[in-house]
Amino acid sequence: MDNMIKSAMRWLLYLLSACLILWAVFPELKSVALGLAAGFAVSAMNAFLLKRRVGMIAEAAIQEGAKKKGMGFGNRIASVLLLAMIAYKYPDILNMPAALIGSMVMPFLLLAAAIVHTLKENSSGKG
């Protein structure tokens, strides 16, 4: 799991650098580039929250008497809602559709990283 998240974060950093270049080169697209960058940041934070939550559930499964802790989904939704509220309040700084699209990128990057990892693992000749 850690290798997949590292790979997805690397691609997310490439996308963030592309947003920075877009922001610097095209002044008319500054709000779109900043919206995408803010969405990418929220998406990365949500991926780390989900990773932590999965680790907590795995530890709770190992320990029989451990209690479940809530608010995993609520925290992730609240971060996206906060981004949407900021984009709604300042439309000249953050583009709302770009911010929401950016906040949904990390699950697709994780899916692509998992597929590549699985293909590499299956074609390595082991097993």
Rank of each mutant, 00 (worst) to 15 (best):
A87P: 00
K30M: 06
R52G: 10
K68T: 13
L22V: 01
L50Q: 12
P91H: 12
I115Q: 08
K89L: 15
G102P: 05
M9G: 00
N95L: 05
K67N: 01
N122S: 10
K69L: 00
L12V: 11
I5C: 00
K126W: 14
I93D: 06
I62V: 15
K89T: 07
I93N: 11
S31Y: 14
L100T: 01
L22H: 05
P27T: 02
R76M: 13
F73Q: 08
M4P: 01
L109V: 06
S124A: 14
A47K: 01
L16I: 10
K67L: 00
I21P: 07
M85Q: 09
G55I: 02
G65F: 10
G35F: 12
D2E: 12
A38Y: 07
S7E: 13
A78I: 06
A37W: 07
F108P: 05
S124P: 07
K51P: 01
A114H: 02
S103H: 03
L81E: 02
L16K: 10
W23F: 14
A38L: 12
N46G: 02
M85I: 07
A60T: 09
R10N: 11
S43M: 10
N95P: 03
A44F: 13
M9R: 10
R10D: 09
N95Q: 10
M96V: 11
L12G: 10
N122C: 06
F48E: 09
G125Q: 00
A60I: 06
L83W: 04
A44T: 10
H117V: 00
Y14P: 01
S31D: 12
I101E: 01
Y14V: 08
A87H: 07
L36S: 08
Y14T: 05
F26Q: 15
M4D: 03
M104F: 13
E28M: 13
L81D: 04
W23V: 00
V80T: 02
L12M: 15
D92M: 15
C19E: 02
A8V: 00
D92Y: 15
I62E: 15
C19P: 03
S7Y: 13
A44S: 09
E64S: 14
P91G: 06
N122Q: 11
C19V: 03
L50F: 09
K120D: 08
G127M: 12
I101A: 09
A112Y: 05
G55T: 08
M71I: 12
K67Y: 00
G55S: 05
Y90F: 15
K30W: 07
A78D: 06
F40C: 09
L34D: 04
W23L: 06
P91A: 09
V80L: 04
A78K: 04
M85V: 03
E59C: 02
M9C: 00
K120R: 08
I115C: 08
A24P: 04
L109A: 05
L111D: 12
A66Q: 10
G65S: 14
M104G: 14
A99Y: 08
W23Y: 13
A24M: 13
L20I: 13
F108R: 06
L111F: 14
K69V: 03
R52H: 11
S103D: 01
S17A: 15
A87S: 07
